[in-house]
Each structure stands twice: as structure tokens, then as C-alpha cells.
Design a protein around this nucleic acid. Structure first.
Lengths: 149, 149
DNA sequence: TTTGCCGTTTACGTCCACGTCAACTATTTT
DNA sequence: AAAATAGTTGACGTGGACGTAAACGGCAAA
């Protein structure tokens, strides 16, 4: 690792910023993907001239997006969640609605946790059973060798 | 619930069987979906004439498929898993390979569990914070009323 | 017999999440 | 000045997981 000779040394006017390439490398996704997320309203980087400038907030969102994806949420769902979060600073009505949505998401996650643990159990049973079979085979092979000697 | 006047009373020659419609209702999916899974090699019902007959094995697989989907596995992945499971009755080489695949899946699930619990934590923080805001608002509203009286 | 209902195959359509050029701009390195 | 590197928009392509319609067969109740 040599010094990170930043080809576009942004003067960073207040707070850390990232280029699209930096984020792509950090999270191991393509720049296309990042632009697509912006297209879908999930990210809103500022601009330095024509180029996109991502701040820590965008980076945090990106992290959330990727985790959400691994959990099977769609981009649209996450966009709604973000929008809700942004709007929910104020009116009680909004806050109550937001709470109900959170509760809904929680139910989803609980279901998923059940699925996951059930799958984990079955997987470990398969694993154990498979190992048993292997050990048995090795014993039999040992027997055969002793017979032959 | 009246008696389930089965319109096509299969004589069930050995073991419980299901029609495609029964399974669709039970799991709340369309028959199209079930046929599609067969197309992709995930199910292999027998036939009674032209119609499909599903046995308990197929039903169990269907359950696995749906759970797998909720966890983000692709149909292709699950097909491979099933194929592997079917072939892994014998040769030690196969068994070892199967074990390695199981280990891989386990890693996937572990990652997913981390994601899930991290998300759950953040969600509950959001929930709590949101409730705080609401309570504060209500206190303020109470103050305002007392001021006015 | 006709009406319903369930089932069948074949084929094309759709939505999501990007991939893949193409053509261009801007800056840095040689 | 030329080449390399990173970025831009725009448009079309793709793979996965089905939806949707068309046209048909078989059986059961009215």
C-alpha cells in the first residue's frame, strides 16, 4: 500500500467527503450501482462542479442500503424508510405513523429471525448427519484393510 | 368450514398426496409459481394422468424453498443444494464436498444474523427516540393548556 | 347438456437491480 | 501535447422470479 495519491484532492470544505470511486472500493460495489441508488432517491450527494461529493451521511446510508439488501428489503422500501425518517421531525401524526411502520419492520425481522434459526438448526443437523456417514465409511474402510492384511 | 368436498378425490395410492391447488392455498402462492419451481428443477411431482401429484417430500421442499426465499437465497442456489443432498448418499468425496458447501451456507447465515441483529438494535433505538419525541410533545402541549387556563 | 371449477401447456409481458457500452469532460501524470 | 485516470449522462441489455392471457381437457353438480 503506497500513499493514497488522491487523483482528485478535494479541498473538503467542512467535514470528510468521499468520491464515488472511494465508496465503490470501500463497499465493493460498482459506481454504476451508487449512481443507480441516487436515481432511485436513496442518496443525494452534493456536487463539486459536475462530480458527486458524498458526505458521511451518504456513506452511512449506503451502509444501511447494503445491509438492507442482504436482508431482502427492496430499494423502494428503504427509500420510503429514509423519506419517513427525514419527515418525522415534528408533527405528532407523522411520528405515530412512523412508529407503526417501525413496528411493521420489526415483525418482518422477527419472522426472518425465526426462518434463520430454523434453517440454522436444520443445517447443523445435516452437517452432523453427514459427518456421521463419513466416520462410518472410514470405519468400514479400516475394517476392510484389517481383513486384507 | 364445511367438509372439504374434494372435487378431484384422488385415491391416494400409498401416502398422502396434494394437488397443486391445495399447496397453493396452503402456502398462499399461485399455481404458476409452483409450476415454475418445477420448471427450475426444484420440485418433481409425479403424475396422475396429466395432473401433478405432490407427495409429502415435495411439500417439505416447497416449505424449504419459501423459507429460503425469505432469507434471500436464489432458486438456483436451492436447486443446487437439493441436488447435492440427493447425490450425497454414498461416496466420501461427495460427502466432503457437501460438508464444505454446508459450511459456506452457515457463514452466509451467520453474516445475515449479524445484519439482522444490528438492524434490530437500530430499529429499536429509532423506536425509543421516536417515543421520546412524542412524549415531549405531549408534555409541551399540556404546558400550553395550563398556561391558557 | 351446460356451467363451473380445476388443471394443463405455450408464450409473451413485467418489475427489479443493476450491467454494459458509448460518447463525452476534467484533471493529473509523463 | 499525449496518455492515463476518474468521472459524467444516456440508452439499451440482462437475469431472476414470476404475472398474465390464450386455448384447451376432464370431471362434477345443476
Amino acid at each position: 500500500m503506497s500513499t493514497p495519491t488522491n487523483p482528485h484532492p478535494e479541498q473538503e470544505p467542512g467535514g470528510t467527503t468521499f468520491t464515488i470511486g472511494e465508496l465503490a472500493r470501500e463497499f465493493d460495489i460498482t459506481t454504476r450501482t451508487i449512481r443507480f441508488y441516487e436515481d432511485q432517491g436513496l442518496l443525494s450527494p452534493t456536487r463539486s462542479g459536475t462530480r458527486r461529493l458524498y458526505r458521511r451521511r451518504d456513506r452511512a446510508r449506503l451502509k444501511l442500503i447494503l445491509r438492507g439488501k442482504r436482508l431482502g428489503f427492496t430499494l423502494a422500501e428503504m427509500r420510503e424508510a429514509f423519506d419517513l425518517y427525514d419527515e418525522a421531525h415534528g408533527e405528532a401524526q407523522q411520528l405515530r405513523y412512523y412508529l407503526s411502520v417501525l413496528e411493521e419492520k420489526r415483525q418482518h425481522l422477527l419472522q426472518q429471525r425465526e426462518d434463520l434459526e430454523e434453517t440454522m438448526r436444520e443445517l447443523e443437523q445435516s452437517y452432523a448427519h453427514c459427518q456421521q456417514l463419513l466416520e462410518q465409511q472410514e470405519r468400514e474402510r479400516g475394517d476392510a484393510q484389517r481383513m486384507a492384511s
